[in-house]
Simulated scan of single mutants.
Amino acid sequence: MNARSAWLSPDGQTRGDTRVTQVGAVTPVTDAKGRSGVLPGSEGGQYRLTGLWLAGTAGTMSATMSVGRAVIQSTIARGAYPVAVTEPVTLTFTDGNPQYGRIDLVVLRVYDHDHDGLGRYEAVVEIVEGEAKALPVAPDAPDASLPLFTVAVAAGLSAGTGGIAWDTARTDLRPTTVAVGGILPTRSDDTAAGGYPGAYREVADVLQRWNGSAWVPYPKAVGGIAPAGAVSTGAYTGQYRDSSTGTLQRWNGSVWAPAVTTPWFTSSLDAGSTTSTTYTAALVETTVTALTLNFTAPGTGAVLLHFGARISTKDNSTATAFMAPQITQGSTVVFTPNDEYAASYGGPVAGSVATMWRLYGLTPGTVYTMTAMHRSSDAAVTCWFDNIFMRVDPTA
């Protein structure tokens, strides 16, 4: 039988017909299989998942499985088994091995003699006991079963020795499943792939979308700005987010970078002087041996250089003091200071001067260094520089 339809055959609908024709019933995994899982929900909608919870009894080896609904997907030929646990189920774990601990697996299991030959037609909650060993691991889940919890049973453990410490021994494995198109609420350790591009799930209050190869954050529509803390990795180059410090950032394909590049700035309030008639970074009578500023060339390769100082020529009204920047990239000098571009001033009474000009042709993304350089027009005249500043702005 290549195609099967529910509620069509005049001879009656088989159990297999019902299972394999649950079109749209659960989250797709392939074009013909759904995702096994517990149906989410809780009384009053307060919790993500309360169905089939395992509540241990303190001081004992027993626990109770609560009511709930689930779907267990088998092979394409067998189809999906819908299961409902309508009354609490009590489970009792075997006492611990005298020498080694073990890990037991609690599953919701379907027995179907037509396929497994075990002589039963029923769904049960059962314990699959693990092997006691020095480094215990959980056993494999049986065919047509849904893993719900693991429970660690320590060596020598029994009701007489205090029973199972449920808060630390129990590990929740319950997967979830929802109808086709529904948003799947799941845990952060769920590594299952999406069934199709455009599928959605929620993990730790963050909406994610399956893009065909990975789950990517999707807190806002394309073009929206993701709120702080909602996105750790960008979903696409050009996505924006608000950082935890309130700074707008842009995903460049590999890292979050500032969306708006702020100016680079440095200054010195420690006055210094020079009598050198050639440009020098070193001033005397100051602790600042050289004032420098590192900056990264923007994508345009162009920046605006701002610089200036409070300048005087000691006891002289005819000499001129010059301040100009030198630009280097590593050990290579990109721009040499000269008088034409300098901020200049002459006179024994100090005056504040500044200038600005555009430097272009830089390599985008490369770090450059701007160094304040100074000189005097007369070797006999001491030129003083105070309140020195430099600023670099990215520009078109």
Rank of each mutant, 00 (worst) to 15 (best):
E43N: 05
E43F: 00
A70G: 02
L52S: 06
G41L: 04
T57Q: 15
G44C: 02
T64P: 03
G59L: 11
T57S: 13
A70H: 08
R69N: 01
K33T: 13
R69C: 14
G24L: 01
R69Q: 11
L52Q: 05
G44D: 13
S36M: 04
M65V: 14
P40K: 13
V38A: 12
A25T: 00
V38D: 02
I72V: 15
R48Q: 13
M65I: 12
V38K: 10
G68C: 03
S42G: 09
T75D: 15
S66M: 00
L52M: 03
G37Y: 01
V67H: 01
M65A: 08
Y47H: 10
V71G: 01
T30R: 12
A77T: 15
S42I: 05
A58Y: 02
I76M: 06
T57V: 14
Q73W: 09
G59E: 06
G59F: 03
T27L: 05
V67N: 11
A55G: 10
G41P: 04
L54I: 09
A58E: 07
G45F: 01
S66A: 11
M65P: 06
I72H: 05
L54P: 03
Q22T: 08
G44M: 06
I76V: 15
L49K: 02
P40C: 04
T64W: 06
W53C: 11
S66L: 06
G56I: 00
A55I: 01
V26I: 07
T75F: 00
Q22W: 07
A70S: 12
L39V: 09
A32F: 14
S62K: 10
T30H: 10
M61N: 13
